[in-house]
Design a protein around this nucleic acid. Sequence first.
DNA 1: AATGAATGAGAGTTCATTCAT
DNA 2: AATGAATGAACTCTCATTCAT
Lengths: 219, 219, 219, 219
Amino acid sequence: MSTSLKLAADDDTNPPGRRPARLTRAEKAEATRQRLFDAAVQTVGESGYAAASIAAITARAKVAQGTFYNYFESRQDLLDQLLPSISRRLHALVRQRVLEAPDDAIEREKARLSGFFEFLEKEPHLFKILSEGTVQAPRGFRMHLEMQSASYRRALEYERLRGNLLIDDPVEMDMLTQMLISTREYLSGRFCFEDGQYVRPSAGVVETYVKLLQGKIFK
Amino acid sequence: MSTSLKLAADDDTNPPGRRPARLTRAEKAEATRQRLFDAAVQTVGESGYAAASIAAITARAKVAQGTFYNYFESRQDLLDQLLPSISRRLHALVRQRVLEAPDDAIEREKARLSGFFEFLEKEPHLFKILSEGTVQAPRGFRMHLEMQSASYRRALEYERLRGNLLIDDPVEMDMLTQMLISTREYLSGRFCFEDGQYVRPSAGVVETYVKLLQGKIFK
Amino acid sequence: MSTSLKLAADDDTNPPGRRPARLTRAEKAEATRQRLFDAAVQTVGESGYAAASIAAITARAKVAQGTFYNYFESRQDLLDQLLPSISRRLHALVRQRVLEAPDDAIEREKARLSGFFEFLEKEPHLFKILSEGTVQAPRGFRMHLEMQSASYRRALEYERLRGNLLIDDPVEMDMLTQMLISTREYLSGRFCFEDGQYVRPSAGVVETYVKLLQGKIFK
Amino acid sequence: MSTSLKLAADDDTNPPGRRPARLTRAEKAEATRQRLFDAAVQTVGESGYAAASIAAITARAKVAQGTFYNYFESRQDLLDQLLPSISRRLHALVRQRVLEAPDDAIEREKARLSGFFEFLEKEPHLFKILSEGTVQAPRGFRMHLEMQSASYRRALEYERLRGNLLIDDPVEMDMLTQMLISTREYLSGRFCFEDGQYVRPSAGVVETYVKLLQGKIFK
DNA sequence: AATGAATGAGAGTTCATTCAT
DNA sequence: AATGAATGAACTCTCATTCAT
């Protein structure tokens, strides 16, 4: 009986000193859950939500169809957990890259964009899961959006407090957040994929992005 | 029968002086086609592509299920016609607003964004049809993207030739096009809808958009 | 209003001295009927009965679907006319070849088999129309069988009266008729077609057939 | 799930000493599969392939329509299994009758024909399943043909090796095989059924068949 | 005589979910 | 906890036939 939309644990930190051969009942259960989860990620990432039928997921996870419902309330329940789970990993990576960046607002913004690209390279599933998510996993998509917005908004707030922005109004801050997020996503869709295969975008993409931010476009 | 992806005629201009009660066979057929098309627009707009089953569409259009296939090759054929049809109307409106705008690059860009908002007010269906389109009507979505990109790109080219842009490189022009389109779309998703209902966005949205373009945000 | 199973006229003898440009109403009608009939023969012969939908037939005949029902009571009505029509042409050819054969029972029997093969070469449609006919056009198939049996039976009767057969009993005559017809048909299916294409069977086929008839097989 | 064209098990041998009321899951499944298979045989045998819709079959087997697809890949998959399954039972019976026959080539050939008639009496479905099979279950029909031809051919080879045939050439052997099979089938169609009901053919049929084989017909 | 739009029943198939084992 | 057979509603699509024009 999983609570709906409880996020799948994606840290695999194991208590040390455990005998690897013997799994407790709870551990075995968790492993099964994770297999189902991963099977869903793979399937959606490769072939889209429509292909992620219970039959396909359970076959991939090598469990019976009925087993699925020991771990997820419904197909939708699982699908809606996909994005939030990925979202957190994405957030962690971008945060890392921002911390490593030179102490400069523009550099940090560049890190946010290229961090996103980097994540996409490691997990190209994200894009498909994301792009169909609006429709196929609306709850999960909304959660992802909220997490991402909150996180990006916090980042911009940080810049504002340090005097790196020319705007001040909360509504304007909101808008800027949306703009940057949307731009980042569209840029990735446009420049990171060719025929469904990930390709590393040219450095020029990030540079032009910066130009836009710096007002070096419209006179 | 129907050529795939042939766009539905959306002009209803009637030859004047005709008795409205008597319709020729061709006119009746066209009316039926239009009823099916409109039923699909309504249904997708209100409840998404998934809800737009043949049964739902034909019931709404008050024709038998089989009739559908006198006008469209398949369900997908119709769904893929939705976006291009709307796209053309959107383009026409925005073009009109741009022509009416004061002769100034920024004013024209403002007209493009607010024209988009205005269209959304009249046809709030667009947003849902658009946002699910990537997945549910890929051919139509691609056509829409191409039409929209070409049109926006032409507009920016116009500005460039008149010396209103600071960039020159074709690739940068392409990127700018994508950025503005994507931003416009995401902004509308964020500021034009609340609980699925259209709400007129505050004037501040357009103003902040302009600020972003003018580089009045990042120091 | 065609009477069911009325055979399509397949003689095209035209009264001489007719102005070719002006067709009487009846002639035009007959031409339309023939176009429909031919379209059906072609379609069934090429792609089987299942492919011979009213839509396919009328499209091929270049008339509207509704027109079909001015000439045939139903789809089945037409399909059931196909075999008898072909059957008569087949009978005419075989009869001709038998008349031309040397005056000898075995020679005439050889003529019946090779005449069948010859017809198949000119109208390979026959085989498909025939082989599916049992199921798809049972009435027409039965008529064809009866015509063919009667005709073959008459031929054998002719041989019997001239003292060329060793049997006498009517039931045995019936059985012999069935055996020869069935053998002829199976032989054609086995030796006249390869991958759906007609191939002229080797002379050995007819020779072995004769051997069988002459009791040169079982000791 | 089900491998295509896997033959349905038609032995019902049960491990003895099992309580009949308690069926294991696997046994229940096999029973369901058999019910579906039998329902198809009945339906096709009585009313032809066209009548054997999924709805009809599942209704007769008293299972839900979806259950069908737990056991067969498609409707066609099942239909193509019908003939091979029957074919094997037919082959077994004929083989038995041939073994019981007096040691004489003609007697064995008589056993082949009358064994066929006997089978038809027990399973009159065969004829309809067979006669429509060419069109409606081509794969199954081909398999049946191959099994039957191989078996008959082997029987004739046996006779040839024992010096009971006057022919020697492999091609002639092939032709003879085809002729005997086809004759047997057509004879059964002509003499075993009246108005769709099985009737035992008179002994004269077999006798005349023998006469034909012995060349006691054409002078 | 010809048209072709409309009909609607019925086809095969998929699939999330349930539940007895 | 795991199984997997059973369910049945819902889906898209086809097609012979009708009938107003």
